[in-house]
Simulated scan of single mutants.
Amino acid sequence: MAETTLETRASGAEAAPPMAEGNLLEVRDLEMHFAERSGWLRRSRRVVRAVDGISFDVRAGETLGLVGESGCGKTTTGRCLVRTHAPTGGRLMYRGGDGREVDLAALPHRDLPDYRRQIRMIFQDPFSSLNPRMTVRDIIGEPLRVNGVARGAELDDRVADLLVRVGLRPQHRSRFPHAFSGGERQRIVIARALSLDPRLVIADEAVSALDVSVRAQILELMVTLQRERGLTYLFISHDLSVVEYLCDRVAVMYVGKVVELGPTEELFTRPQHPYTQALLAAVPQPDPTRRNILTQRPLEGEVADPADPPPGCHFHPRCPFARDICRTEEPALRPTADGRRVACHFAEELSLPGLAVDDDAAGLSDPEDT
């Protein structure tokens, strides 16, 4: 993408094709490029391709996981979906509660409030995401008040109901955030996100700052709330064990691109992209039956610079299966025979082990023999 495309697209973009039935959100060729200026006069600049042309769908009622190493662009993707960042390219086709389809990427700011009520975000750190000078009543009730949904006694009742739904006592709504533990604070964050009855919730590392036992409780809460309120989740995480438990499908990102997308169980047991397999190999497995030989071969090298990615497949400098075509031709994210999508030239040829699969069943072969 040329540097001139760093200007946000005009709202008068060409009409998009109709969305597929059952999809709540369709992301098409999403880009978020940042210009970094440097030098004495700040004249020189480079373009950081944080998100570089990704496409995926979010189905109504499902939990889609978005995973990858730090710096892969998954958090930036989430912020584009709630329009904290204005995308520099692509479409964000969303089907609203009234059935109307709209491109969120092309909406001017004055038209965003209605959709920000339907798409809410849960942030990673429950300590910094809550204003220490506001009471729980004010924190949870602020979206209701700002959007003119409730005031006075009605607002109090709604806050009390939300606290009960997330497992907290309504009597504590006059307390300040410092009076709560980390897990309790994250329950308050969740209550605030649910205050406007959203349809899509984007959870950005929502449990990574919590202890293991508290993490399990919050995940159970999210599952319960999804079932009760018909929520759809986009769950952003680097913790694959959490993603395996919570998500119906998983999209794997590397240096601003989606490299594999498919149902969770299939992706975890039979990965088709070498990067996905490398992420799975790094997951600690206390159960010896869930380990495989490649867990002893850690992924080498550093994540590519999104401002200067390598040519061809961005993963090829770290890939043990790379061939000449990988160094010159970028693979497209394409469907495979089993209905998944993968960006690898040799996905059908590789036999990559996953979790909970023995080596014989996986057809494990040495990288040198491939």
Score class of each variant (00 low, 15 high):
residue 152 G to S: 13
residue 160 A to M: 07
residue 316 H to I: 02
residue 272 Q to S: 12
residue 211 D to A: 04
residue 122 I to M: 02
residue 46 R to Q: 14
residue 323 R to S: 07
residue 365 S to Q: 15
residue 132 P to L: 10
residue 7 E to L: 14
residue 113 P to T: 10
residue 144 L to W: 12
residue 182 G to D: 10
residue 104 L to T: 02
residue 250 V to W: 03
residue 358 D to K: 08
residue 189 V to F: 01
residue 83 R to G: 09
residue 130 L to F: 13
residue 333 L to D: 06
residue 317 P to F: 09
residue 196 L to S: 09
residue 8 T to E: 12
residue 102 V to P: 02
residue 286 P to E: 06
residue 293 I to R: 15
residue 325 I to L: 14
residue 283 V to K: 03
residue 275 Y to P: 06
residue 187 R to E: 04
residue 192 R to Y: 10
residue 162 L to N: 05
residue 271 P to S: 11
residue 289 T to D: 15
residue 58 V to E: 00
residue 322 A to E: 10
residue 339 G to K: 05
residue 149 V to H: 03
residue 57 D to Q: 08
residue 97 G to S: 07
residue 17 P to L: 11
residue 10 A to N: 14
residue 10 A to D: 15
residue 305 D to A: 05
residue 321 F to N: 06
residue 127 F to P: 03
residue 126 P to E: 11
residue 189 V to N: 15
residue 295 T to Y: 00
residue 35 A to G: 14
residue 13 A to W: 07
residue 286 P to D: 06
residue 304 A to G: 09
residue 355 L to T: 10
residue 161 D to P: 00
residue 202 I to Q: 03
residue 231 L to Y: 01
residue 312 G to F: 03
residue 77 T to F: 05
residue 175 R to L: 12
residue 12 G to A: 13
residue 222 M to T: 01
residue 63 T to Y: 02
residue 324 D to Q: 13
residue 163 L to I: 04
residue 236 I to T: 03
residue 38 S to W: 13
residue 294 L to A: 07
residue 335 P to Q: 12
residue 307 A to L: 09
residue 207 V to T: 09
residue 164 V to I: 01
residue 237 S to A: 15
residue 52 D to K: 03
residue 364 L to A: 11
residue 348 E to P: 15
residue 304 A to Y: 07
residue 288 P to V: 00
residue 134 M to H: 12
residue 292 N to V: 02
residue 343 A to V: 10
residue 126 P to T: 04
residue 333 L to V: 10
residue 350 L to F: 09
residue 152 G to W: 14
residue 193 A to M: 12
residue 221 L to M: 04
residue 301 G to E: 09
residue 107 L to K: 03
residue 210 L to G: 00
residue 310 P to Y: 01
residue 234 L to S: 01
residue 209 A to N: 04
residue 218 I to M: 05
residue 201 V to Q: 05
residue 105 A to R: 02
residue 241 S to H: 00
residue 310 P to V: 03
residue 365 S to R: 15
residue 43 R to V: 08
residue 341 R to E: 11
residue 174 S to G: 15
residue 290 R to E: 11
residue 350 L to Q: 10
residue 248 D to T: 08
residue 323 R to Y: 04
residue 58 V to Q: 02
residue 215 R to H: 00
residue 177 P to Q: 10
residue 336 T to A: 10
residue 218 I to Y: 03
residue 72 C to F: 10
residue 42 R to G: 13
residue 266 E to H: 10
residue 284 P to C: 04
residue 210 L to T: 02
residue 74 K to M: 12
residue 39 G to C: 11
residue 4 T to S: 15
residue 57 D to E: 09
residue 50 A to Y: 08
residue 150 A to H: 08
residue 302 E to P: 00
residue 112 L to E: 07
residue 52 D to P: 05
residue 237 S to K: 01
residue 189 V to R: 02
residue 354 G to R: 07
residue 119 I to W: 01
residue 282 A to R: 08
residue 16 A to C: 04
residue 270 R to L: 07
residue 319 C to L: 07
residue 153 A to R: 15
residue 272 Q to H: 13
residue 82 V to Q: 02
